[in-house]
């Protein structure tokens, strides 16, 4: 059945309103998390556990992906630069791409798939099995005890993961460019030093911190507010990945436009 045009626009309008309402709810939720975070900060063991869960357990997927992304950049970069007879610039091109853009963005996307889904489904299942209610009745604020440590853990872990991603990626590009395709080793590193400035690194750091906040907020928000059913938990994990991907890609454009 095809919707009538007025119905189509009414539907579009309704989803727009729903989207804005959800954005507002997420901002209020962020406020709630920040108000409850002193509770989490007083319990370093809880935080360490979550940095381990979101960060350390994501290392394998981050490092493997980074190495292959770096090798692809090495191949494609070499191919493009060779046409301009500028193979020596490979180090600079790869480093700029990774530090400013690919490192933070791809890390955030992988983070959503690995850690974000885990957070959303864990909190969602706690909701579905009344564990969050039980905490409330025991006079323990679940936002402080459950949500805030996971949020802060993610905000700490993602920038570190992004830094590791960029380093391994550069190594992957070096491996293909220098060790396999024969770019001069000295040129690879000196050109990188020449063209990569502190501002470029800063742009990546800013992005990875913003993505850390966005990805952790989306995962905890979806998990905490999911319908308490098996289907609800499933939908929450799916929405975590989809929403994080879209939000990160929009944010990276906005930040790039602002900083350039």
């Amino acid at each position: 059945m095809v919707a009538e045009p007025p119905g189509f626009f009414a539907g579009l309008f309704r989803s727009l309103v729903r989207g804005i309402a959800k954005l507002g709810a997420a901002v209020l939720f962020l406020g709630d998390i920040l108000r409850s975070s002193p509770y989490a900060l007083r319990r370093p063991r809880l935080l360490a556990e979550q940095v381990h869960n979101t960060g350390v357990l994501s290392l394998v997927i981050i490092m493997t992906s980074a190495f292959f992304v770096g090798m692809v950049l090495g191949l494609q970069g070499f191919d493009a630069l060779a046409r301009l007879r500028q193979e020596d610039l490979l180090g600079a091109v790869v480093a700029l791409t990774l530090l400013k853009e690919l490192g933070p963005v791809v890390t955030a996307l992988l983070f959503a798939g690995r850690a974000g889904t885990a957070i959303a489904s864990e909190i969602g299942l706690m909701r579905a099995t009344d564990q969050l209610s039980a905490m409330e009745v025991m006079a323990v604020n679940p936002v402080g005890r459950i949500v805030a440590p996971r949020f802060i853990g993610g905000v700490i872990a993602l920038p570190l993961l992004a830094a590791i991603f960029s380093c391994i990626g550069i190594f992957g590009a070096w491996f293909i460019g220098v060790a396999v395709l024969g770019v001069d080793n000295g040129a690879f590193w000196t050109q990188m030093q020449e063209f990569v400035s502190t501002e470029d690194v800063r742009e990546g750091v800013v992005k990875s911190i913003v993505f850390g906040i966005a990805a952790s907020l989306i995962a905890t928000f979806e998990g905490y507010n999911c319908p308490p059913t098996a289907e609800g938990v499933g939908m929450a994990t799916t929405r975590t990945v989809v929403t994080t991907a879209i939000v990160v890609l929009i944010l990276t454009y906005i930040i790039t436009a602002l900083l350039l």
Partner: peptide, 22 residues
Amino acid sequence: REQLYQLRRRMGMLFQNGALLT
């Protein structure tokens, strides 16, 4: 909230499925 939490410390509740922290 603060007083509600104070009051809740004087109550206990047993949930249908136990609701133990897994």
